[in-house]
Protein backbone atom coordinates (compact mmCIF):
# COMPACT_ATOMS: atom_id res chain seq x y z
CA UNK A 1 0.00 0.00 0.00
CA UNK A 2 1.34 3.40 -0.91
CA UNK A 3 2.38 5.89 1.72
CA UNK A 4 -0.02 8.71 2.29
CA UNK A 5 1.39 11.88 3.69
CA UNK A 6 -1.36 13.68 5.41
CA UNK A 7 -1.33 17.40 5.73
CA UNK A 8 -2.13 18.81 9.10
CA UNK A 9 -4.21 21.93 8.80
CA UNK A 10 -2.54 24.33 6.44
CA UNK A 11 1.08 23.42 7.10
CA UNK A 12 2.83 22.61 3.87
CA UNK A 13 5.14 19.85 5.03
CA UNK A 14 3.63 17.09 7.04
CA UNK A 15 5.23 14.85 9.56
CA UNK A 16 2.40 12.35 9.63
CA UNK A 17 2.63 9.03 8.00
CA UNK A 18 -0.61 7.17 8.45
CA UNK A 19 0.69 3.98 6.92
CA UNK A 20 4.04 3.40 8.51
CA UNK A 21 5.69 0.03 8.60
CA UNK A 22 5.41 -0.76 12.24
CA UNK A 23 8.20 -2.61 13.97
CA UNK A 24 8.94 -3.11 17.63
CA UNK A 25 12.41 -1.62 17.44
CA UNK A 26 12.90 1.48 19.55
CA UNK A 27 14.10 4.40 17.47
CA UNK A 28 15.47 7.81 18.32
CA UNK A 29 13.79 10.71 16.53
CA UNK A 30 14.39 14.43 16.48
CA UNK A 31 11.20 16.46 16.17
CA UNK A 32 10.94 20.13 15.35
CA UNK A 33 7.70 21.59 16.64
CA UNK A 34 6.65 25.07 15.60
CA UNK A 35 4.41 26.59 18.24
CA UNK A 36 2.64 29.85 18.91
CA UNK A 37 4.72 31.69 21.45
CA UNK A 38 1.98 32.02 24.09
CA UNK A 39 2.18 31.44 27.83
CA UNK A 40 1.78 27.81 28.68
CA UNK A 41 2.71 26.36 25.32
CA UNK A 42 5.78 24.60 26.67
CA UNK A 43 3.73 23.22 29.55
CA UNK A 44 1.29 21.79 27.01
CA UNK A 45 4.07 20.01 25.15
CA UNK A 46 5.82 18.72 28.26
CA UNK A 47 2.51 17.77 29.88
CA UNK A 48 1.68 15.71 26.82
CA UNK A 49 4.91 13.73 27.13
CA UNK A 50 4.50 13.27 30.88
CA UNK A 51 0.80 12.45 30.76
CA UNK A 52 1.08 9.88 28.01
CA UNK A 53 4.31 8.35 29.21
CA UNK A 54 6.56 9.33 26.31
CA UNK A 55 10.32 9.87 26.66
CA UNK A 56 12.12 13.17 26.33
CA UNK A 57 15.86 12.80 25.77
CA UNK A 58 16.39 16.46 25.21
CA UNK A 59 14.29 19.53 24.65
CA UNK A 60 15.20 23.04 23.60
CA UNK A 61 12.96 25.98 23.00
CA UNK A 62 13.34 29.57 21.86
CA UNK A 63 11.44 32.11 19.85
CA UNK A 64 12.56 32.02 16.22
CA UNK A 65 10.09 34.40 14.58
CA UNK A 66 9.35 37.46 16.67
CA UNK A 67 6.82 38.99 14.27
CA UNK A 68 4.97 35.74 13.66
CA UNK A 69 5.22 34.96 17.40
CA UNK A 70 6.54 31.49 16.68
CA UNK A 71 8.86 29.41 18.81
CA UNK A 72 10.69 26.30 17.77
CA UNK A 73 10.80 23.38 20.14
CA UNK A 74 13.32 20.69 19.29
CA UNK A 75 12.60 17.40 21.00
CA UNK A 76 14.69 14.29 20.89
CA UNK A 77 12.56 11.32 21.82
CA UNK A 78 12.62 7.54 21.63
CA UNK A 79 9.97 4.94 20.94
CA UNK A 80 8.75 2.28 18.56
CA UNK A 81 7.54 3.60 15.21
CA UNK A 82 3.92 3.35 16.41
CA UNK A 83 4.74 5.41 19.51
CA UNK A 84 6.65 7.99 17.46
CA UNK A 85 3.66 8.35 15.11
CA UNK A 86 1.39 8.81 18.14
CA UNK A 87 3.70 11.45 19.59
CA UNK A 88 3.59 13.42 16.36
CA UNK A 89 -0.18 13.08 16.04
CA UNK A 90 -0.71 14.08 19.67
CA UNK A 91 1.57 17.10 19.24
CA UNK A 92 -0.43 18.01 16.17
CA UNK A 93 -3.63 18.07 18.24
CA UNK A 94 -2.38 20.88 20.45
CA UNK A 95 -4.26 23.90 19.20
CA UNK A 96 -1.25 26.23 19.33
CA UNK A 97 1.08 23.82 17.52
CA UNK A 98 1.50 24.97 13.92
CA UNK A 99 3.76 22.31 12.46
CA UNK A 100 5.39 19.08 13.49
CA UNK A 101 8.45 17.92 11.57
CA UNK A 102 10.15 14.61 12.08
CA UNK A 103 13.69 15.54 11.07
CA UNK A 104 14.78 11.93 11.35
CA UNK A 105 12.54 10.80 8.50
CA UNK A 106 12.11 13.98 6.46
CA UNK A 107 15.57 13.77 4.91
CA UNK A 108 19.07 14.69 6.01
CA UNK A 109 19.36 17.14 8.86
CA UNK A 110 22.01 18.69 11.05
CA UNK A 111 21.99 18.58 14.83
CA UNK A 112 24.08 20.78 17.06
CA UNK A 113 24.39 21.15 20.78
CA UNK A 114 26.46 23.43 22.95
CA UNK A 115 28.06 22.18 26.16
CA UNK A 116 30.23 23.68 28.86
CA UNK A 117 32.67 21.44 30.77
CA UNK A 118 34.55 22.20 33.98
CA UNK A 119 37.69 20.09 34.28
CA UNK A 120 39.98 20.34 37.33
CA UNK A 121 43.44 18.82 37.73
CA UNK A 122 47.13 19.48 37.48
CA UNK A 123 50.28 18.11 35.90
CA UNK A 124 49.96 15.66 33.01
CA UNK A 125 46.18 15.52 33.27
CA UNK A 126 45.87 19.28 32.83
CA UNK A 127 48.08 19.23 29.76
CA UNK A 128 46.21 16.26 28.29
CA UNK A 129 42.81 17.95 28.83
CA UNK A 130 43.99 21.04 27.00
CA UNK A 131 45.42 18.96 24.13
CA UNK A 132 42.16 17.01 23.69
CA UNK A 133 40.13 20.21 23.86
CA UNK A 134 42.19 21.51 21.00
CA UNK A 135 41.55 18.39 18.94
CA UNK A 136 37.79 18.72 19.60
CA UNK A 137 37.91 22.44 18.80
CA UNK A 138 36.63 23.28 22.26
CA UNK A 139 37.34 26.81 23.46
CA UNK A 140 38.73 27.66 26.82
CA UNK A 141 36.32 30.21 28.29
CA UNK A 142 37.74 30.29 31.80
CA UNK A 143 40.89 29.05 33.46
CA UNK A 144 42.47 29.01 36.89
CA UNK A 145 45.71 27.31 37.95
CA UNK A 146 43.71 24.21 38.83
CA UNK A 147 40.85 24.20 36.30
CA UNK A 148 39.53 24.92 32.85
CA UNK A 149 36.07 25.65 31.57
CA UNK A 150 35.68 24.43 27.97
CA UNK A 151 32.94 25.39 25.56
CA UNK A 152 32.21 22.92 22.82
CA UNK A 153 29.67 22.81 20.00
CA UNK A 154 28.80 19.80 17.92
CA UNK A 155 26.54 16.88 17.30
CA UNK A 156 25.45 15.20 20.54
CA UNK A 157 27.71 12.19 19.82
CA UNK A 158 30.74 14.45 19.66
CA UNK A 159 29.86 15.96 22.99
CA UNK A 160 29.32 12.49 24.47
CA UNK A 161 32.75 11.48 23.20
CA UNK A 162 34.38 14.57 24.66
CA UNK A 163 32.72 13.88 28.01
CA UNK A 164 34.06 10.31 27.97
CA UNK A 165 37.56 11.62 27.44
CA UNK A 166 37.34 14.31 30.11
CA UNK A 167 36.00 12.02 32.81
CA UNK A 168 39.39 10.44 33.76
CA UNK A 169 41.03 13.84 33.43
CA UNK A 170 39.06 15.47 36.25
CA UNK A 171 35.65 16.32 34.88
CA UNK A 172 33.73 18.25 37.56
CA UNK A 173 30.56 19.46 35.92
CA UNK A 174 28.81 19.59 32.56
CA UNK A 175 26.04 21.85 31.29
CA UNK A 176 24.42 20.97 27.94
CA UNK A 177 21.87 22.99 26.01
CA UNK A 178 20.12 20.09 24.32
CA UNK A 179 19.82 19.66 20.60
CA UNK A 180 18.95 22.31 18.02
CA UNK A 181 18.32 20.81 14.59
CA UNK A 182 17.45 21.82 11.04
CA UNK A 183 16.89 19.91 7.84
CA UNK A 184 19.62 20.23 5.23
CA UNK A 185 19.17 21.80 1.79
CA UNK A 186 16.70 24.40 0.57
Amino acid sequence: MSDLNLKKGTSAKSAYNLRPNFSDIVERHTLAVMVENEPGVLARVIGLFAGRGYNIESLTVAEVDHEGKLSRITIVTTGTPQVIEQIKAQLGRIVTVHEVHDLTVEGPSVERELAIFKVAGDGEKRVEALRLADIFRANVVDSTLKSFVFEITGAPEKIDAFADLMRPLGLVEVARTGVAALSRGG
Binding site: L4, L6, Q86, A89, G92
Partner: peptide, 17 residues
Protein backbone atom coordinates in the same frame (compact mmCIF):
# COMPACT_ATOMS: atom_id res chain seq x y z
CA UNK B 1 -11.30 13.55 12.13
CA UNK B 2 -8.49 13.17 14.66
CA UNK B 3 -5.24 11.83 13.16
CA UNK B 4 -4.12 10.68 16.60
CA UNK B 5 -7.01 8.20 16.76
CA UNK B 6 -5.62 6.36 13.78
CA UNK B 7 -3.20 3.55 14.63
CA UNK B 8 -3.31 4.55 18.30
CA UNK B 9 -4.66 1.22 19.49
CA UNK B 10 -5.36 -0.90 16.44
CA UNK B 11 -3.27 -0.79 13.31
CA UNK B 12 -5.52 -0.09 10.36
CA UNK B 13 -5.16 -0.76 6.66
CA UNK B 14 -7.21 2.08 5.18
CA UNK B 15 -6.91 5.27 7.23
CA UNK B 16 -9.08 8.24 6.26
CA UNK B 17 -8.74 11.48 8.18
Amino acid sequence: IDPSSINKVIRVDIPIV
